[in-house]
């Protein structure tokens, strides 16, 4: 193990390729999904629970899930998860979504709210 190296120049190639993959993914989402969405589609366990228009009055959608409920607030063209019965609360901390293709995912409850 005396010639064991912590870095090699070729590592930069790996880093570069990975960054390019990330950048490609990022721009694919930004440019393809730049338009404002019209509605938010909610799926539970892969099945469509419902599609809700982003315009119209402010309202909260209650989604029954395995562990209890999730609450999705629809307001001013945006959708935001305000409450979820799940241990990690990642979806609740997620910022509100507005553009097409954006999504809030609650993995423990298998809920996806996606802007269309």
């Amino acid at each position: 193990m005396n010639n064991f190296k912590l870095f090699k120049k070729a590592d930069l190639l790996i880093a570069l390729i990975l960054v390019l993959i990330a950048a490609a993914g990022f721009f694919a989402f930004r440019f393809v999904n730049d338009e404002e969405g019209n509605s938010v589609k909610v799926t539970v366990d892969g099945e469509v629970f419902g599609s809700f228009s982003l315009s119209g009055p402010e309202r909260t959608i209650e989604i029954p899930v395995k562990n209890g409920i999730c609450r999705l607030l629809v307001k001013d063209g945006a959708a935001d998860m305000t409450y979820a019965d799940c241990p990690n609360q990642i979806c609740v901390h997620h910022a509100a979504i507005t553009s097409k293709g954006e999504a809030i995912v609650c993995l423990p409850n298998r809920v996806v709210a996606e802007i269309e």
């Binding site: 993914g25 989402f29 799926t43």
Partner: peptide, 15 residues
């Protein structure tokens, strides 16, 4: 398991 919307996280997860 939950649908292709999770691909939205892909770039962040790569970084």
């Amino acid at each position: 398991a939950v649908g292709k919307a999770v691909l939205y996280y892909f770039p962040v997860l790569v970084i």
